[in-house]
């Protein structure tokens, strides 16, 4: 176990049985399970495509691949976005302030 030594301390009683969930291994296992499900589902649909599993035949592309592509593209584009439009956290507050306290003229 590589979790911090005091990982059990202060935990909610209900969460104690689940304490292993945060280990990297648990994450990897979950990832593999999901991957298997995705691939399996894709395979199943390809095999049974005549069985009415395909939801809207006239929609282009593989329906089930869309999320993969979409999310991947989005996440990768996120890097570009961060590079392009992120600013230091105090960007706005560094400006003179949004509400100008006017001087008494």
């Amino acid at each position: 176990m590589t979790a911090p030594r005091d990982s059990k301390a202060g935990m909610h009683p209900l969460a104690r049985p689940l304490s292993g969930l945060s280990s990297p291994r648990a994450g990897l296992i979950a990832l593999i399970v999901i991957a298997v499900l995705v691939v399996g589902g894709f395979a199943l649909e390809t095999v049974l495509s005549d069985g009415g599993l395909s939801k809207y035949p006239e929609v282009y592309g593989a329906y089930e691949l869309l999320p993969l592509a979409a999310a991947a593209v989005a996440i990768l584009l996120g890097w570009g976005l961060v590079w392009l439009i992120s600013r230091p956290g105090d960007f706005y507050s560094r400006a003179a302030g949004d509400v100008t306290e006017g001087q008494d003229d």
């Binding site: 100008t100 306290e101 006017g102 001087q103 008494d104 003229d105």
Partner: peptide, 9 residues
């Protein structure tokens, strides 16, 4: 008026 600090002004 927006930039006044004296309310009467």
């Amino acid at each position: 008026a927006l930039f006044q600090s004296d309310v009467r002004r």
